[in-house]
Structure formats: C-alpha cells, structure tokens
Design a protein around this nucleic acid. Structure first.
Length: 198
DNA sequence: ACTAAGATTCGC
DNA sequence: CGAATCTTAGTA
C-alpha cells in the first residue's frame, strides 16, 4: 500500500504519479489510468474555493484521506487528500479493470470492459465506492488503498474535464493510448511536457 | 425556507 | 441535447 509520504507532496505531482498505481476496494481493483489535480489554494475549480466543508476537510484530515462526494444527485466522486506545503486533491477519473471484473459488470450493468470504469462516476459504481468511504484513511485501510502498479508507461497531460473555472490549467494526467481513459482530451497535451505550476 | 449550481452519465 | 436527483451553501 502507498505510504503516507506518497501523499505528502503537491497535488500535481501526486496526480501524475498516481497514474499507473493500483486502486483496491475490497475484492475489486483496477489500474489508475486517469487523474486530475486540484490545488487547495489559488485554484478556483477546487472545492476549497467555494465549499467551507472542503476547507475543513483539508485542515482536519491527514494526507491519504479519501474525499468522496455526491455529484449531480447521481454519482459519487473519489478524491484523495494530499498535503505538503501545498494541499489539494487528486480526482480519480478512470481505471483499467483488474480484479473482480464480473462483479464490476454486475454493479455497472454493462459487459464491455471499456465501459466499466472509464469515468469518475463509473468507477465508483463499479467498485461500490460511496459516501461511507468519505474520510477513510487510504494509508492504513487494508480494504481501501492504493499500491504500486506494474510498470510506468508514458503519461500525457491535458486540460481538466467538465469544469467551468480555472479551465486553463493543464492538470489532467492519463496513460497514453490506454483504452480505459474517460475520453479524448479537450485539447491534447503534448507528451513529456511539464505541466504549468502555480 | 427557497434557490442555484455542480470535478457526470445515459438515453432519446 | 436534456433529464435525473441530491447535497452544499448563500440569501431572505
């Protein structure tokens, strides 16, 4: 399982390095193939910019804590709190299904592997992640944690998806060429280029 | 109390 | 392209 110090770095670094790691939830798991970084300061798209409860979460929880919220009255979104000199969240946007694929198919009601976890709302449904996971410490929970992935492949960068503020920040990271990414980039980032920092 | 907006997904 | 459906937060 990834130790606490993994999450004691800035959100952009954590988001990029979580791509390729494995997410395990009970008997189910998948490889993280897409993430986004949200910075608790100076990022108008981060929940901390307009939600006092998010600021309280950042202040009161340890790095590695799961930040799970309900979106559009329909879908759960999984984030991980990261904290160093800068704090923020990493949104988990897509997985490549690994273990428990039949369970995921049952939970999602679709058979196609590419449809199981190719979106932030899809993967929580597939793995059974809900509000009861909110606040759980992913550095000490044997049933809900990240671990090192197989090998690192090349990672691409793009603008974040589905937000209406701070749209210029290239803080989305995804495994190049992976079939389980949520969708093609709004504006394709160049592989190997360092993303902008604050 | 009432209203608005939202890091999405699916179906028409 | 629009509905689904609910939580948080701002305003009265």
């Amino acid at each position: 399982m990834l130790e606490r110090c993994f999450f004691q770095r800035d959100p952009v670094t954590c988001a990029r390095e979580l791509v390729g790691c494995k997410l395990t939830c009970g008997m189910l798991s998948g490889i993280v193939v897409e993430t986004e970084a949200y910075d608790a300061e100076g990022d108008d798209a981060c929940h901390t910019a307009f939600r006092p409860s998010a600021r309280a979460f950042v202040g009161g929880q340890q790095p590695g804590a799961a930040y799970v919220y309900f979106s559009y009255g329909v879908h759960w979104m999984l984030n991980v709190l990261v904290k160093a000199e800068r704090a923020g969240f990493v949104l988990i946007r897509a997985l490549e299904p690994l273990e428990g694929i039949d369970e995921m198919r049952k939970a999602r009601g679709v058979h196609d592997l590419r449809q199981l976890c190719s979106g932030p709302g899809k993967l929580t449904k597939a793995l059974g992640i809900t509000g009861c996971h909110h606040g759980r410490d992913m550095c000490s929970d044997a049933n809900f944690a990240f671990s090192r992935g197989p090998a690192d492949r090349s990672i691409n960068t793009s603008l974040r998806i589905g937000i209406s503020r701070a749209m210029e920040l290239p803080w989305r990271f995804y495994a190049a060429g992976n079939l389980h990414v949520s969708r093609t980039s709004p504006k394709e980032g160049r592989a190997g280029v360092e993303p902008a920092r604050l």
